[in-house]
Design a protein around this nucleic acid. Structure first.
Length: 588
RNA sequence: GUUUCUGUAGCUCAGUAGGAUAGAGCGUCCGCCUCCUAAGCGGAAGGCCAGCGGUUCGAAUCCGCUCAGGAACGCCA
């Protein structure tokens, strides 16, 4: 379905043309003066200069051609040249009825569906997920769903940090603790044990211990680097350990992401890109792109328009080892080969912007990606605590995701437990759903690129602009519809009619905006616009709800129209929260 | 130091193809349950949109400077 703004703009465009003006001035927006009108067009003022005419005259001429419109009920020119319009109630109702029966609420699917790889999550193997991983997961998941909803082929890749020095550290520490293991036995030819030599909890403790030791002990560090080197060159025993680390760690990561309802299509990582590195390096050398600088192999990515120094993209360290840049480039090689993406979207901490600028430029310059492959960096800001500094636990440490989620679920359970009659099991599941909505909405309602204050107490509140408030609104609708179903069977046949009250009309006008909003959220990578939108829809609904006795309505047609509006509103809210990555319970 | 992002109500945040009177929530104060979930709804108070200058019919929005805070700046990822 076409967007309402487009439909009205077409109408107004025709009027502009009939009046002898270019229809490009006929851009229509939702009015910022709802007391005066519903939609407005400011094109007369923009055109005034070109046509050397007073804007109000242009507006008046255009308005004259709008009076017999089937969509627009009233149009008037206001000083200095606004064109103010109201829609015909039955036209709004028709539009909403179409939405109600259309697939996916009549969203316009992409004309040319793109293949989009979304690189998000950013988890590291052998390290627990912590709050620092939250934003990437939440924002990336939402963007993935939005793009998919619009008809694109979207591939979500967790892109694990599963290669390099950190693995050498774990191997070294393990060797210190259990030197008798066969992995460390030289010339060992037999099979290695199937059971991993550590649990996830031990693994999560091994890494930080090793990391700390390496910083204090030069010799230890050398060993870890050596282990890293051997692993990368196929050392049999270390590879076996690496596989254990992967198995243990990935299982745990899947569980954690599962708690967040975040799912990836691909569990690829840096290790997968390794095999593409030699050929890529060859390509960079042969193409004359790379040169040696201080012993390191680099590709210059400076551009004339730069306002600052952009350091070259470093491909190989002076000791010959690969780096962050290398792996990300090789991953692009891999992605080109396997998926031929039209776009690769990175949802990463904004502090990595420079790195991705380098990688993107290098990939383009060296033809690692096709010229028309879009590379997008969506950098998100830091989660700050109430003190305005990066979020920490009370003890000053990094909070583990697992602990955070457990705490949210427990608190939410206590909040709802004494409120309603519910089995413990249902209450637990309900608390989980509400808790997740609080967490995700709290994050997503902020503009991704900005730092934001992580205030759980506020996010978990049922009042105000929060996830729980949105869920509460949906639950209210569900409750009415359930009651309606008890006496009436065919809910789906209910038809919307023109609004009978102001609050109903406002709600209808909110619902109309749906495809407009989703499209913008996609284009701008801005889930927060969906949050703002559903908050307005929820407000409009609650006002309508408050002023209207829906089930007690005596006029059957009107009642059915109310029910139809409720069905549509519910579908809309549910669709939107699904795009944000959470869902609503039956009751709460 | 260079570059870059941010600065909007007491607090947390919306608000870009420049538009009419800058919006929410929380907090504060005042109202509303015989009625579909009051986890709701209505109302009040609260602003030099960091400051100064410019562009123009018109600026929170575009440009310049200043101030304040954060971040990044080649062999970690």
């Amino acid at each position: 379905m076409k967007k309402m703004l487009e439909l009205i703009a077409e109408e107004v465009g025709q009027a502009f043309e009939k009046a002898g003006y270019d229809k490009e001035y006929a851009r229509v927006t939702v009015s910022n003066r709802p007391d005066l009108c519903e939609y407005q067009c400011n094109g007369a003022m923009a055109g005034a200069k070109v046509y050397k005419k007073a804007p109000i005259m242009i507006a008046n001429e255009v308005v004259a051609y709008l009076l017999d419109s089937k969509k627009i009920a009233s149009a008037e020119a206001a000083a200095p040249g606004f064109i103010n319009m109201k829609l015909r109630p039955e036209y709004i109702a028709t539009y909403l009825n179409d939405m109600k029966v259309a697939k996916d609420l009549g969203i316009e699917k992409a004309m040319n569906p793109k293949t989009i790889v979304v690189d998000y999550g950013g988890a590291n193997v052998a390290k627990p997920l912590h709050v620092g991983h939250l934003r990437s997961a939440i924002i990336g998941e939402s963007l993935k769903k939005i793009a998919r909803f619009l008809g694109h082929e979207v591939i979500g890749d967790v892109h694990l940090g599963d290669w390099g020095y950190q693995m050498g550290l774990v191997i070294t520490e393990l060797q210190k603790r259990q030197p008798q293991l066969p992995y460390f036995e030289e010339n060992y030819q037999g099979d290695y044990p199937k059971e991993p030599p550590f649990t996830i909890h031990e693994l999560e403790e091994i890494y930080p211990t090793a990391s700390t030791r390496a910083k204090e002990d030069e010799e230890y560090k050398e060993e870890a680097l050596r282990a890293t080197y051997l692993l990368q060159n196929g050392h049999r025993g270390y590879t076996a350990i690496w596989n254990h680390i992967m198995n243990v760690s990935v299982a745990d990561l899947k569980k954690n992401y599962g708690n967040l309802d975040v799912t990836f299509d691909l569990w690829k990582g840096e290790a997968d890109a390794q095999k593409y590195i030699p050929a890529m390096v060859e390509h960079l050398k042969e193409g004359g792109y790379a040169h040696l600088d201080d012993g390191a192999l680099v590709v210059d990515v400076k551009e004339d328009s730069d306002t600052k120094e952009i350091p070259p993209c470093m491909i190989l360290k002076s000791d010959g080892a690969a780096l962050y840049d290398t792996t990300d480039l090789a991953t692009l090689v891999e992605r080109e080969e396997l998926y031929h993406p039209d776009e690769v979207l990175y949802v990463v901490d904004k502090r990595q912007e420079l790195h991705f600028t380098q990688v993107f430029r290098c990939a383009r310059k060296t033809n690692i990606v096709k010229p028309n492959t879009k590379l997008t960096f969506l950098g998100f800001g830091t989660m700050n605590g109430k003190d305005g500094k990066p979020f920490k636990t009370r003890e000053g440490g990094v909070m583990r995701l697992e602990d955070l989620i457990r705490e949210i679920n427990e608190q939410m359970y206590e909040k709802i437990a004494d409120n309603r009659m519910m089995s413990q099991e249902e209450a637990k599941e309900t608390a989980r759903m509400i808790g997740l909505s609080a967490l995700k909405y709290g994050d997503l309602s902020n503009q991704a690129s900005k730092d934001y204050m992580f205030d759980l107490e506020r996010f978990m509140s049922f009042e105000g602009n929060t996830g729980p408030y949105i869920l509460y609104t949906i639950v209210r609708i569900k409750s009415i519809l359930a009651k309606y179903m008890e006496t009436n069977k065919s809910m789906e046949e209910c038809m919307l009619r023109g609004a009978v009250t102001e609050s109903q009309r406002s709600l209808m006008l909110e619902v109309v905006k749906f495809n407009e909003i989703i499209e913008i959220a996609h284009e701008e990578c801005a889930p927060h616009k969906i949050c703002a939108y559903i908050y307005e829809v929820a407000n409009a609904f609650n006002k309508f709800y408050h002023e209207t006795k829906i089930l007690a309505e005596e006029n059957e047609d009107t009642k059915e129209s109310f029910i139809a509006l409720l069905i549509l509103t519910k579908k809309l809210l549910e669709t939107c929260i699904d795009l944000l990555g959470f869902e609503a319970p039956e009751r709460m």
